[in-house]
Computed example of a mutant assay.
Amino acid sequence: MEVFAVPGLPEIEAGDDVAALIDEQAALRDGDVVCVASTIVSKAEGRAYDLADFEAGHRARAIARRLEGISGDEKDPRFAQAVLEESDELVMTAPFLLTVTRFGHITVNAGIDRSNVPDADLLLLPEDPTASAEAIRQGLSADVSVVVTDTSGRPFRHGQQAVALGWAGMYANRDWRGERDRDGRELGVTVQSVVDELASTANLVTGEGDGGTPVAVVREWEFGDHDGHDLLFRDLESDFVRQALRQWSY
Rank of each mutant, 00 (worst) to 15 (best):
Y49E: 03
G228C: 08
F79P: 01
V241Y: 14
F103H: 15
V100R: 15
L21F: 04
A82T: 09
E89M: 10
D230S: 10
E24Q: 14
L122M: 03
E186N: 03
R219A: 00
V36S: 02
A120L: 00
E74I: 04
G207C: 07
E197C: 07
S200K: 02
W176Y: 15
V108Q: 15
V217L: 01
R78Y: 02
A19L: 07
V163F: 06
E85V: 01
G69V: 05
Q192C: 09
Y250F: 10
D30L: 05
T130A: 12
V100S: 12
R114K: 13
S115H: 10
T130Q: 09
R157L: 12
A80L: 03
R185D: 08
V189W: 14
L204F: 09
A172W: 03
D121T: 06
E13F: 09
D196W: 00
D181P: 12
G212I: 00
W221V: 00
V217I: 12
L140S: 08
E179S: 14
P7W: 11
I22S: 01
A82N: 06
D227V: 04
G212W: 11
G57V: 03
R154G: 04
H105D: 14
P118G: 06
G104Y: 13
R154E: 11
E127D: 11
V191Y: 02
E222H: 05
T39H: 12
T190L: 14
W176M: 10
Y49H: 11
P77V: 03
A14G: 14
R102S: 08
V148L: 08
T130F: 02
S38C: 10
D128I: 04
L198P: 05
P95S: 11
L245V: 04
G139Q: 05
P118T: 12
A142F: 00
G184C: 08
S152D: 07
S249I: 11
T149F: 02
L9N: 10
A164Y: 03
V117E: 03
A14F: 12
D119H: 05
Y49F: 14
L84R: 06
R78C: 09
F96H: 08
V163A: 03
G139W: 02
S141G: 06
I40S: 03
F79C: 04
R29L: 01
D175W: 07
R78V: 07
V117K: 09
V191S: 05
R219V: 00
G224M: 09
P7H: 06
R102Q: 13
F54Y: 10
N109F: 13
D239P: 00
Q25E: 15
V148A: 05
T190R: 15
E220Q: 01
V205M: 10
G69I: 04
C35K: 06
V41T: 15
D73H: 10
E220L: 00
G111R: 11
D210F: 13
Q247T: 12
E45D: 13
Q81C: 01
V3R: 10
E55C: 08
Y171D: 12
T151S: 06
A131C: 04
D181H: 06
A164K: 02
I12V: 15
E179W: 05
R185E: 08
P95G: 06
A82W: 06
L231P: 03
R65Y: 01
R137G: 05
H105F: 15
A26P: 02
S193W: 01
T107L: 11
L51R: 15
N203E: 09
E13Y: 08
R61M: 06
Y171T: 03
W221E: 00
G188Y: 01
F233N: 13
N173F: 06
T149Y: 02
